[in-house]
């Protein structure tokens, strides 16, 4: 298989297979959650659950107080660096927007490529720092399962191969681009079956927590 055939496969059948697995897997996951159902709440409502739910989605994004923030400064900075970097790279790089547009029929303006490049570097460094911490911190290391390392690699590889493609590092560009797309397909396939699903379920559970608390009239 030469680079052109490889690229053709990952852009065609590979991407379609990964997309189908991702969509079906995620829909099963989410519908299972939504269809769990809850018992009817017979108590009198003490507040607006909807607004509380919405509020909680955002308030949980900031640290609860200065003290806990100081104690987990490293996780806070690296975690945000990585997540914001990842968001910018995925949604604000022109070739990515072009793919989304071909899928959904609409797009949005992109950031200049060197800016996205900077965010890629931030995300890569943050991810490496988080891995280092996972390996060195005794408690985090004890709590880590093989899945944590698998998910770390699945997230790191698309960023790394994307960065290598843009800078033409070590391999011909066609191979790098093919590897980049393949690594994203790997990520998409793992997505529904690992803790990567948190990208979707995070906001659902925050909403749920906020709504429950709001209806009871307490802060969440």
């Amino acid at each position: 298989m030469n680079s052109a055939e490889f690229l053709l496969w990952v852009r065609g059948p590979g991407l379609n297979i990964a997309m189908v697995i991702f969509i079906i897997g995620m829909l099963i996951r989410l519908l299972e959650i939504f269809m769990l159902g809850r018992k009817q709440n017979l108590a009198e409502l003490r507040g607006n659950g909807i607004s509380a739910g919405l509020r909680t989605i955002f308030t949980r994004s900031t640290p609860a107080d200065k003290n806990s923030m100081r104690r987990s400064m490293f996780t806070f900075v690296a975690g945000y660096g990585f997540h914001i970097g990842l968001f910018v790279v995925i949604f604000l790089l022109m070739p990515h927007i072009q793919l989304i547009q071909s899928l959904l029929g609409f797009g949005w303006p992109a950031l200049p490529t060197p800016v996205v490049d900077l965010f890629t570097v931030i995300a890569l460094i943050s991810l490496m720092a988080l891995l280092w911490r996972r390996l060195t911190h005794p408690v985090v290391r004890y709590l880590s399962t093989p899945q944590d390392y698998l998910v770390w690699a699945a997230t790191f590889l698309p960023l790394l191969t994307g960065y290598m493609s843009y800078h033409h590092l070590w391999f011909p560009y066609s191979w790098l681009l093919g590897m980049h797309i393949l690594s994203v397909e790997f990520l998409l396939i793992l997505f529904p079956f690992t803790k990567l699903t948190h990208a979707f379920t995070l906001f659902i559970s925050r909403w749920y927590t906020g709504m429950m608390a709001g209806e009871k009239g307490v802060a969440s």
């Binding site: 053709l8 852009r11 072009q98 793919l99």
Partner: peptide, 11 residues
């Protein structure tokens, strides 16, 4: 079609 688009009908 842009290079980053799928070679098949992804939609």
């Amino acid at each position: 079609n842009a290079l980053s688009e799928s070679t098949m009908d992804l939609s």
